[in-house]
């Protein structure tokens, strides 16, 4: 189930250079949404909507929060939206992360691995897992860090890695991940970020025999499964096949997709 309507933006923040956080009043979408799903946003003057992951859902307030980076003309236009303006959202779309009660080992810890903007869709999972979560957040450098305080406030243990070493551990998220997996109380790993990071994380989890769910990004047209525009290759019992990131995803079991 999804909706497609105009909704008011009730809060807008620039949280880093070129990165914006919008809170949108959309009770019906908030009621339906689960972490890991996305909304498809119409941008005036552009043919295609912009798929943006849902960062936070407040079902009581009837709001969702989205965090996005200006990457081209479309997101630049979207960033011009002001508080009080309406935006046209189609959503919530896709399959989100499994909620803690749905995973087999809910008494165990969850590791949330986000690379760059990929941290945004994991925030909802951090809130759900709270002190049973370790958030492993990787950024290029100090000026790219987003949502670190938000993650800390959930009660999750936060580990920050920067490629230039300006904050936290210098290097990629893979090193701390290997260390975390040495203990046997990790039940599940959720990851979102650049494909090379997802690939490395998936390989490590396979070796450690830990369930890993990845959230993928792809160029998208309809967003609802009608056009088959956003494909990714999956491997299942019936061999390789193309699946739709918008409908079968964006969250997949890492073992079932070829990254």
């Amino acid at each position: 189930m999804y909706k497609c309507k105009l909704y008011h933006v009730i809060e807008k923040k620039a949280i880093s250079a070129g990165v914006y956080s919008f809170t949108v009043l959309c009770g019906d979408i908030a009621a339906l949404a689960v972490p890991g799903q996305f909304v498809h946003i119409k941008v005036e003057g552009f043919t295609l909507r912009r798929p943006i992951s849902i960062c936070d859902i407040d079902k009581d307030e009837g709001t969702i929060r989205i965090v996005f980076e200006v990457r081209g003309c479309g997101t630049a236009k979207l960033a011009e939206t002001r508080v009080g303006d309406s935006i046209d959202l189609l959503g919530p779309l896709g399959n989100g992360f499994e909620l803690p009660s749905q995973t087999e080992n809910s008494s165990l810890n969850a590791i949330l691995i986000g690379g760059g903007m990929g941290v945004a869709p994991l925030y909802g999972m951090a809130k759900l897992h709270a002190n049973k979560a370790v958030a492993l957040m990787g950024f290029r450098g100090y000026d790219k860090i987003i949502l670190a305080d938000d993650f800390k406030q959930t009660g999750a243990q936060v580990i920050i890695c920067t490629q230039d070493g300006s904050v936290g551990t210098k290097g990629l998220v893979t090193e701390p991940l290997n260390k975390l997996l040495e203990s046997d109380d990790v039940g599940v790993v959720y990851a979102c970020g650049p494909v090379p990071m997802l690939k490395a994380v998936a390989e490590i989890c396979t070796r450690a025999n830990v369930l890993c769910r990845v959230s993928l990004e792809e160029r998208m047209a309809c967003g609802v499964g009608a056009c088959a525009g956003c494909a990714c290759k999956s491997v299942g019992e019936t061999g390789e096949q193309m699946v739709r990131v918008c409908k079968e995803g964006p969250v997949f079991n890492a073992r079932e997709v070829l990254l």
């Binding site: 047209a221 088959a228 525009g229 956003c230 290759k233 193309m242």
Partner: peptide, 14 residues
């Protein structure tokens, strides 16, 4: 199976 991604590209007005 169709083609490998990316399968979509935006263009001016299309």
């Amino acid at each position: 199976q169709g083609n490998l991604p990316p399968r979509i590209a935006e263009t001016p007005s299309g």
